[in-house]
Structure formats: structure tokens, C-alpha cells
Design a protein around this nucleic acid. Structure first.
Lengths: 233, 233
DNA sequence: CGCATAGTTGAATTCCCTCAACTTGAGTGG
DNA sequence: CCACTCAAGTTGAGGGAATTCAACTATGCG
């Protein structure tokens, strides 16, 4: 069963002038910029939730292990997204780097303090939380009630919408088949076979293992088996 | 495939003096008390998220349907818990009454306004959101990586901890086997068989279909296959 | 009492997993 | 530059956990 590689953080921390561009929020708070290597652990499972991070570049995954080594990935976190907001006093998941990534870290304590002064901050945090929650709910439906093909199809559609294009129409899948499998509740083999099926059915095109192009977005969305609308008003 | 019964709300709304005891939060905001019948819909899927509700008594479920009728239940909401905080401008799930329930409803707009005046409110909301998120994450692990037995076992342990005891040591499972199945990503038959196994193995005792008693809590927890701890400090 | 719904149990099927072999690609050192 | 190694990915064959289909029982409600 898949177990992540050894964790190491490249440069432990790099303080940087706070007026850094990059669309950073909370200019009132000092932040740290850090770069993490592929497979490095940003924080371990069940560790005290002292900081939150915004991904500036690269991709992270949140992962949880069962006692016997089974792994569930909770989310992939792409550039522009947040990680570490998962709630309680301790992190539910570990956070690891899928690719080398640059992050901005913020102290939760500073944020809490800021909430009392700036309502805009509270709103921003709430929005991030709601976004995370919506993604979790979507994944629950996927894991609970969708077939392997439906899971892979909606995964591709989701990722395609959150990642920037890379070259002529396609996009880069930064994570391994194992990561995808542990995210979708499947095995590596099933993910591989399903992707092969989609390729053979001309729904997608696979340049190499990490370079994908969606040929038929409509069909892909249909294969994703998405929800019916019960409320139209 | 399981489809919920027709929706109807018993007394549409019942205004009540706001000084009602009941441990109600946000005394600054007018709220409404309502009673909903078994299987009544509190709000439909994808409806505008105008209100949030605290359950005073009874049990709710949040449900989402796929186009072909497959159903996923996102959560069961017991007395003292909240529903409707799921985030965006529209509800992700529908909310329905598992049993006749009494609710207190709060306008989101009022709450938003209150946030700007009282930071304690913002904190309360954030805590509810975080709790919901933690539950969702736990369910993701369950659906993605646990066997049927593990799912049922951890479900029972979870529910047992959130529901009041009913009579000598046991507790009431208010929801149907179909609800449990749609929550755990299984079928009614599998849930029934698994509960039967647990009964035969003397882990639980089943008085009638809705009355359960845990005989061996340690074994039940072990069967739930709960996570290893990677962080001890 | 009779009907409908919920729950249980059995038999057969299926989708996905497990195990295994093979292919591919990236990194290393001769 | 090529041989070697190792990890990642693909593909095939067989097996198993949960589903599907079906029959039956139990429970409530008019």
C-alpha cells in the first residue's frame, strides 16, 4: 500500500518583505515564505494547527493514514488555494508537497487577533472554510455513490478547472496515479485502466502520464455523473 | 433506489418569544421556532442559503441526489447541532427530517450583520463550520478506505457518542437502514447483514431495528479501524 | 384484518481489488 | 553514449467484497 516518501523541508524558512506582490492577503500580518521539496511534509497529521498556508506555486496534498497503512487523500491544493484551515486545535490531515512548492505561512494566533479588528478578515476565513467544506461534500458524493469511471471523470473535470493550461490545450496532472487512487478511493490499477478507457473512447488524450488533454468536455462531464438539479428558482 | 417521501412542513412557522430557554445562541437575533414532520424537507438541494437552523429535538439528515436517483447522505444532525451552514450562497445538500423535529431558524443576513458587531458570534459560526468540516473529513476516510464492517462500526460508535442514552444502556437509532446505507455508501442489505454480524459476534445487541446497545465498546472501536497517530507531542 | 413499508436472509452477479508480469522513463555511473 | 537500476505506470488473470435480484418475515397503520 502506498506510503509517502521521507519528509524534508528545503530551506526551513525564508523571511521576506511583506509587501510582496503575489496577491497575498492579510497585509497586516507578517508572513513567511517557504519553499518545500517534492514529498516534503508541511505539517503532520494531528499536529497542533498553529499556522495556515497559502500555496503560491506548486501543488500539495492532504493525507491521512489508517493504522495498517491505507491512505486517504483529502484534497489536492493548487496555487492560489489554502491549506491548514481544517478546523480544530489539531490538523486532521497531514499536508505534503506533491511537487516542489512555494508557500506563504500565517500564524493562526495572529489571524485570530486580526479577526477582532477587521471583519473583512473574518469573512475571508469563512469563505475559505466554506470552499473547503463544499469540496469535501463533493468528494463525499463521489466516494459514496459514484463508480470508478464517474470518479475519474469528475476528478479530471475538477482539476482541469482549477489548474492553468500548459501548452496547446492540455494541462499538467502533477500528482502520481497512486495519489489519484488514494484521493478517489480506488487502486492505482483501476485509475490506470479507467484513464486508458477514457483515452480509447476519445474522451481525453494522454500525451504522457502527467500531461492530459480533454477532447470531449461535454462527454467527460456527462461521464462524471453529476447531480440533478431539484431547485431551479 | 431509495427516494425520500413527499415533503411537507407541519406548521409552516411558529413565532415564539425570543427568551425561550433551550440554550439558544444569538439572543440578539429574532429566531423562529418550527416543528417539522417526519420526512419533511427543511430546505431543498441547491436552494438559496437564507437561513441556518439549530436542532432543538429530533434528527435531520442532509441529502443529495444524483441524476439517476442514487442518494448520498452528508450527515445526520442531532439535537443541539446545526444545519444549513454549509457555505456558499446555495445549500449543497437538502435537509430533511428523519423524525419529527423542532428547530430554531436564524436568518443568515441577520447573522452576517451581527458578525460585524460581536466577535463572539463570528467565533461561534467558525466553530460550527469547523465541526462540520471535521465530520466531513472523517466521512471521506470512511467512504474512501474503510470496509463495510469498519464503516458500520465507526458509525455506531459515532452516533452513540452524539445521542442521549435511551433506557438501560442502549440508544435509539432514529434513522432507517436505508438512511444508514446512503450515509455509509453501502446498500440496505449490506448494512443489515453487517449489523447482524456484529450482533452475532456479541459486539452489539439489537433490541428492535431502532434500539441498539453496545456490548463491547473497545471491540467496536477496534473494528472501526481508526486512524494511527503519527504525532504524539 | 389487509396492505404497505421496512428489514432480513439467501443466491448469483459484478465491479473493483489483488497479484503478477511487463513496459516505460528518469537518473546514475561506467 | 549506453548499460544498469529503480520507481512509476500499464496490462492481464483470477478472486473477493459488496451489490443486485429475489423471496420471505416483521412491523406498523388504515
Amino acid at each position: 500500500m502506498s506510503v509517502s516518501a521521507s519528509a524534508r523541508i528545503l530551506p526551513p524558512m525564508l523571511r521576506v518583505a511583506p509587501q510582496d506582490a503575489m496577491g497575498l492577503p492579510f497585509p497586516q500580518i507578517a508572513h513567511h515564505l517557504l519553499t518545500v521539496a517534492r514529498d516534503a511534509e508541511i505539517f503532520p497529521e494531528a499536529s497542533p494547527a498553529t499556522h495556515v498556508y497559502k500555496v503560491l506555486s506548486g501543488t500539495l496534498r492532504t493525507a491521512k493514514l489508517l493504522a495498517d497503512g491505507r491512505r486517504q487523500i483529502g484534497a489536492f491544493v493548487f496555487a492560489g488555494e489554502w491549506v491548514g484551515f481544517d478546523g480544530g486545535p489539531r490538523h486532521f490531515y497531514a499536508a505534503e508537497a506533491v511537487t516542489e512548492s512555494r508557500l506563504a505561512s500565517f500564524s493562526r494566533r495572529d489571524l485570530e487577533r486580526l479577526i477582532c479588528e477587521d471583519h473583512e478578515v473574518a469573512r475571508t476565513i469563512q469563505e475559505v472554510l466554506c470552499g473547503t467544506l463544499a469540496a469535501a461534500h463533493e468528494q463525499i458524493v463521489s466516494l459514496g455513490r459514484k463508480t470508478a469511471t464517474e470518479r475519474v471523470a469528475s476528478f479530471l473535470a475538477d482539476v482541469e478547472g482549477r489548474l492553468p493550461e500548459s501548452g496547446k490545450g492540455g494541462f499538467m496532472l502533477p500528482m502520481s496515479r497512486g495519489d489519484i487512487a488514494d484521493y478517489l478511493g480506488l487502486t492505482v490499477e483501476t485509475v490506470s485502466r479507467t484513464l486508458g478507457d477514457l483515452r480509447r473512447r476519445r474522451v481525453i488524450q494522454i500525451e504522457d502520464a502527467h500531461q492530459v488533454r480533454i477532447i470531449d468536455p461535454t462527454l467527460l462531464a456527462a461521464l462524471g455523473g453529476d447531480e440533478m438539479r431539484r431547485y431551479s428558482a
